[in-house]
Nucleic acid binder design. Structure first.
Length: 439
RNA sequence: GGCCCUAUCGUCUAACGGUUAGGACGGCUUUCUUUCAAGAAGCAAAUCGGGGUUCGACUCCCCGUAGGGUCACCA
């Protein structure tokens, strides 16, 4: 087999979309699997809607997802006008296209393709034989003028000139294929192989778009998803690797990818499964990485305290921005400063104010015996466990935990105590006792 | 509407003529547990409908139905 060449040709008329990202990913995986390469080019023949800003967004997204590519030379279709003009001339010269006066609006002369009105059939790598009767296409327009080509002409020219062997694109392009085959055959080009991948749908089963919430790659980046998780998830949408694995590394995806195994039907984007996958990746990340994200997001207070929060954060978040949410909801504040206690909540369900106060007093004594250096959670637990077992764990430990956190939900009291240290622990227990005395 | 594509649990999917239709996410239950989270165990949940072909259809064929895509001087 000749060298595989694929391409990813977005038009920079919008932000880098999830659907585009998956198309890019499949082109990349296919090329990488076969030791080939993927070209990137920008289809900016619609000059009015194309923006540099969007180009940059696409480039940044590709880099973030670690989808590598070769830049076409030149990168933009707007830089290849002479080439298109030559092809247009060739087409006109051999009678396959002609200039025509445009009736509608009368904006000058356009170039129309002379439709041979045949049947065009191609074998799609995913869908098998697809047949179109091109008659209804009429003599479609391929250029606004000799210097202003339209999509179909430009695509055919570019794919040919860069030696593209496989065109892997969204299903929404399937009916464009007939026009492009007609043009390419009129030009005498070799036909590439086509593979039309199914679309990504929103939960309401329509094409995924902005109104369904986050649809751009950059939004997922902002929300704190890991690029590996997003790539992994996108690859699984419409394709199952032969190994049946659900969590695959970049290298595994490349090794297992098979375009002919891609499904024919559209898949609904399930944010819950993406979150789950993302959590799987976060679980494996280093303590350093979590510390870095946490310090930045919580607000860099005491780094040594945040370092102790790492295991706690690791098991509670799906995406990095969950740290922001937790911060906003005050789920970290008691690690940094004494909590405000609601007197009615100190005793908990398994105790009353008077006994809770007794328990706290005993706990204070017990914990005072701990070494002055800050003990770890195991040592703290050991110091009070026997007493808690004896008096009832719920009755003893709820007041302790509440005294330390001031919250109805939190990690266990030993973990909290280990983070805030011996002195703060004793102080908070004392504070809770004092409040209890007042009621 | 024309043309094209598609159809297994709520969602992503396995099965490639013979299985009690399997797995994952989510959900629910139980367990662990002072609470939360995590963990462990378990449960519910699907072949769109109708005809064929066949000893036997999720699987092959036809017809419906439903969903999607596309019908630009956008890409």
């Amino acid at each position: 087999m000749n060298k595989v060449v694929t391409r990813f040709p977005p038009s920079p008329t919008g932000y880098f979309h999830l659907g585009s990202a998956r198309t890019a990913l499949f082109n990349y995986l296919f090329a990488a699997h076969h030791g080939g390469e993927m070209y990137l080019r920008f289809e900016d023949t619609d000059r009015a809607r194309s923006k540099k800003e969007y180009e940059n967004d696409i480039l940044a997204g590709l880099d973030w997802l670690q989808i590598s590519y070769t830049k076409a030379e030149p990168l933009r279709q707007s830089e290849r006008l002479p080439a298109y003009r030559a092809y247009l001339h060739a087409l006109i010269k051999r009678g396959a296209a002609y200039e025509a006066e445009e009736a509608e609006g009368g904006k000058g002369r356009v170039v129309r393709f002379k439709n041979p009105n045949t049947r065009v059939a191609f074998s799609d790598l995913i869908r098998g034989e697809v047949i179109f009767d091109t008659t209804e296409l009429k003599d479609f327009i391929i250029a606004r003028s000799l210097d202003d080509p339209l999509y179909h002409l430009a695509v055919v020219a570019d794919d040919h000139d860069t030696g593209v062997t496989h065109i892997i694109r969204g299903e929404d392009h399937i009916s464009n294929t007939q026009r492009q085959i007609l043009i390419l055959e009129a030009l005498g080009f070799k036909r590439p192989l086509y593979a039309h991948i199914p679309l990504i749908l929103a939960p309401d089963k329509t094409k995924l778009s902005k109104r369904h919430g986050a649809a751009s790659v950059n939004e997922y980046r902002q929300l704190g998803y890991e690029p590996e998780a997003l790539v992994n998830y996108l690859a699984l949408l419409g394709w199952t690797p032969p190994s049946g694995k659900e969590k695959l590394s970049h290298a595994e995806l490349i090794a297992e990818f098979d375009i002919s195994a891609v499904h024919k039907s559209a898949a609904v984007f399930d944010i819950e499964k993406l979150k789950w996958l993302n959590r799987e990746y976060i679980r494996e990340t280093s303590d350093e990485r979590i510390l870095e994200e946490a310090a930045r997001r919580i607000g860099c207070k005491d780094q040594s305290i945040i370092a102790k929060l790492v295991p706690f954060i690791r098991e509670r978040i799906n995406v990095w921005s969950d740290i922001d949410t937790m911060t906003a909801e005050g789920e970290f504040t008691y690690f940094f400063k004494d909590p405000d206690l609601d007197p009615s909540k100190i005793a908990g369900k398994r105790s009353d104010a008077a006994t809770a106060r007794e328990h706290l007093a005993t706990l204070y004594t017990l914990l005072s015996k701990l070494p002055v250096r800050n003990p770890d959670a195991t040592e703290i637990k050991a110091a009070v466990w026997e007493y808690a077992e004896d008096k009832g764990r719920g009755a003893v430990l709820w007041p302790l935990r509440y005294a330390l956190s001031g919250r109805e939900k939190s990690p266990d009291p030993f973990a909290i105590s280990a983070v805030i240290g011996r002195e703060a622990t004793l102080q908070r227990i004392k504070a809770a006792q004092t409040i209890l005395k007042d009621i």
